[in-house]
């Protein structure tokens, strides 16, 4: 006779005894499970309520997806149309890249002092640190698209407004990332500088800065990648870049041009990601080595 079978038989025969000894395992519904179920039901309920409240209806979805499939058919093949329009698209793309580069670098520079003010170990005092944090948070809470609208009304339409929009919204992000990097820096170096008679600024320059600069450079590259994505769309509100062309083409239903532009964006983003990924890997290697 098989040994496993006897073990199972024994367990089945002893069922009542096992149940008496481990009541927890034989409860129909353990409390943890009940809680998870309630949470699941609540979130599903909210989802259903949301679908109802936001006017989802099967007929609308079927109609819409039918339209989408139709558009998709028109998008093939991707075709920029005339030669002059191709040049316009390429000009938009170069503007997008320029906006991303200038916005990222400008924000990286301007956020530099703010990062130190917002980190508890390098700030002037608690109040300054708290205020800097809140200012950075508020700046971050406003989307780049909103900043673009505001800047368009200040300096007028065009890519310059886009640069300023990316720059403003990124100051918040950079400030936060910088201050976190500064707070995570090893404090022994600062103690060393202080012990040999250096002041607070010396401590920052020779103790903190060498440790955080490579981290900051990594953040800058990463944000450049992310900004190439955001600067493709701020043209929608007139702040330069390829987004203006894209939204025009979508509104006039030129689907071949739309798919061409989208493909162009995908390729550009992939290229930028690869280059910046390499640079970041090199940076990380240099830091480790």
């Amino acid at each position: 006779m098989n040994r496993a079978v006897t073990l199972r038989d024994a367990a089945v025969a002893e069922m009542a005894g096992i149940a008496a000894r481990h009541p927890q395992q034989f409860r129909a519904m353990p409390p943890a499970r009940l809680r998870a179920l309630a949470l699941f039901l609540a979130s599903t309920g909210l989802l259903v309520f949301g679908l109802w409240r936001l006017e989802f209806s099967p007929s609308r979805l079927v109609d819409g997806f039918g339209q989408l499939v139709h558009f998709l058919g028109l998008m093939i093949p991707p075709d920029p149309g005339t030669w002059s329009r191709t040049m316009l698209i390429l000009r938009g793309l170069s503007e997008t890249l320029a906006i991303a580069l200038l916005g990222t670098l400008g924000a990286a520079l301007l956020a530099f002092p703010l990062g130190f003010l917002a980190a508890w170990n390098t700030s002037v005092n608690r109040l300054v640190q708290f205020l800097s944090r809140r200012v950075l948070d508020s700046v971050r809470g406003i989307d780049a698209l909103i900043w673009a609208l505001i800047w368009v009304s200040v300096v007028g339409l065009g890519p310059f407004a886009g640069v300023l929009a990316i720059l403003t919204s990124d100051i918040g992000t950079f400030g936060k990332l910088y201050s976190e990097a500064i707070e995570a820096a090893d404090r022994k170096a600062v103690e060393g500088v202080t012990a040999s008679g250096g002041g607070k600024l010396h401590g920052i320059r020779f103790g903190v800065l060498p440790a955080v600069l490579p981290v900051m450079a990594g953040h800058v590259l990463y944000m450049f990648e992310s900004n190439t994505r955001s600067s493709t769309i701020i043209g929608i509100v007139g702040a330069g870049g390829i987004g203006l062309m894209l939204s025009e083409m979508i509104r006039t239903l030129e689907w071949g041009v739309v798919s061409f532009i989208v493909l162009l964006i995908l390729v550009t983003v992939a290229v930028i990601d690869t280059i910046s990924g390499r640079l970041r890997a090199a940076l990380a290697g240099a830091r480790a080595g």
């Binding site: 819409g64 493709t232 929608i236």
Partner: peptide
Amino acid sequence: EFCRTVPDIVFALIFVIAFGLGPVPGV
């Protein structure tokens, strides 16, 4: 990869035309 590289506002622009104005294309 395609879904996350195309910005959501571009999807929204296209969906607004397909589904009509309102929260449905946004969602």
